[in-house]
Amino acid sequence: MSESIIWYLREFLRTEWIRKFLLAKTDPLVTPPYFKDYPTLTGKECTACYQCMMICPAPGAIAVLRHDDGWRPEIYPGHCIRCGLCVEACPEDVLQSGRVLEAQHRDRTGFRATFHLSIDREICMRCGNCCISCPVGREGEPDGAVLKIEKGGVQILNSDLCTGCKTCEVNCPNRGIRVARVVEGVQEAAA
C-alpha cells in the first residue's frame, strides 16, 4: 500500500505535472494540413474521363456533371468517405485533398485500369437503361457509343471506349450488365 501512495505522491509532485496542472490549456483545435478532407477543385479543366467515378468505392459519392463552362466533378458529403482515391486516379489533377496530390507528384504514383464489359443474356431483359445512361459518346459521331440495343439485345460496340464509370451497372434493374474494373497501383521509376 505504502509503495502505491508514494508512487502517486511522486507522480503528482513532478514539475511537469505541477506545471501542467497550473497552466492547463487545451490544445488548439486545428485540422492538420495532412488530413485528407473532402476533395476540392484545383481549377484545372476536367475532361470528363470518369476515372474518379470509376474508382470511387462509395455509392453515390461523386458525379461528373456538365455545367455551362464545362465538366466538373461534384462531391457529395454524406456519401463521400474521404479516401482520396479519386484524387489519385484523376489524370488531370482536377481534384485535391490534403497532401495526396503532393505525395502523388513526389512519388510518381498512379493507377492503371482496364475494363471488361460482360452481359448476362439470361438475366438481361433488354430495357436499354444501360445504353441510355452510358455517358460515353453522347454527342459527336453516333458510332462513338459503347452500348447499343440491336437485334433484340444489348450489343457491345466499342468496349475500348468504356471508362469503367459503372453508371450502367447502377442503372441496371437486375444486374445483367457487369463492368469488371481491373485496377493496379503503379509507380514510375524515379528519373
Binding site: 512519388d107 504514383t109 485496377v183 493496379e184 497501383g185 509507380q187 521509376a189
Partner: peptide
C-alpha cells in the same frame, strides 16, 4: 526503393 509494384488481381 519504390512503394508500388503494380500487378493485377
Amino acid at each position: 526503393g519504390p512503394i508500388r509494384g503494380g500487378g493485377a488481381c
